[in-house]
Amino acid sequence: MPGVRNGGAMGDDTGGRTAAPAAPRADRPRGLAVLRRSGWRPPPVGGSRRGAAAGTAVLLALAAAAVLAPWLAGHDPLATDTGAVGLPPGSPGHPLGTDALGRDLLARLLHGARVSLAIGFAAGALTVAGGTALGALAAVGPRWFDAAVTRTADALLALPMVLVALALAAVAGPSPGTVVAAIALTAWMPVALVARAEVSALRGRPFVRAATSLGLSRTRVLLRHLVPNALPPIAAIAAFEVGHAILTESTLSFLGVGVPPNRPSWGNLLTDARAHLLTGQWYAVALPAAAIVATILAMNLVATGLDRRGAAEGRTW
């Protein structure tokens, strides 16, 4: 199989042009090219499935880069070097150049991926778990609880969330934990409303009545029958929520209330670089921005794939 297709040429091309090993810009084509050479083919289904596969590949590559950051980076992301200030990409020893304090940009980008992805996935997971729990309980719980959840969600949805997150983070002080909490507290509403709608609709289904008629407790009916069947649409939003969380982390860090400034995150990299945007150091902004965009695009591709899959296969997953 591998020899049949010469699609690997694209990967070789990119790899050849970028001299440095494991340059993040080359990560995306590299990841796919490796898969292609190993004989992997996207399943011949629909565009959305191929998109989801590509998105997953990009995310895996980014995650691998983040995990392996200490070994891939080659420099301490915090070490300043006054002899190598503001180097452009392609400089010897600094494949992506250095910032105004002489810190290696590749190392900062890779270490930033650790922080940004970890916060993004943690906040996304917390958002989805909390939102699903609140929405499901609102659907089966007492009327006052339902009213409390839906009205709080409506009220929060009417507020500009970045401002709320900003206020929360500002009060609690910058730390990764604060960022995760601020994101989850301001993003759970769509998940909760979808979970509530799904569970409400499922309550009238015959299998739920059958389970109740067998003497299952309301908790068991909820956990075993209602929530699992409500998951496909929630899974689709979950992917969007992770993308949203990464973006919010960048925003909060950029505004100075997110990850402490001494720790590199993609948002902090943007903050550091913004003063130099118009002085020729465009790459200091472009690289972290590109990493954020690539992650969110990949996440959205996965989300769309999950969504279509749910729609096409209906209730049987």
Binding site: R205, F207, R209, A210, A211, S213, R224, N229, T316, W317
Partner: peptide
């Protein structure tokens, strides 16, 4: 119930 297939949970 009347609805045989629908009275079983599709996910388990």
């Amino acid at each position: 119930l009347q609805e045989a297939g629908a009275s079983l949970n599709p996910t388990v």
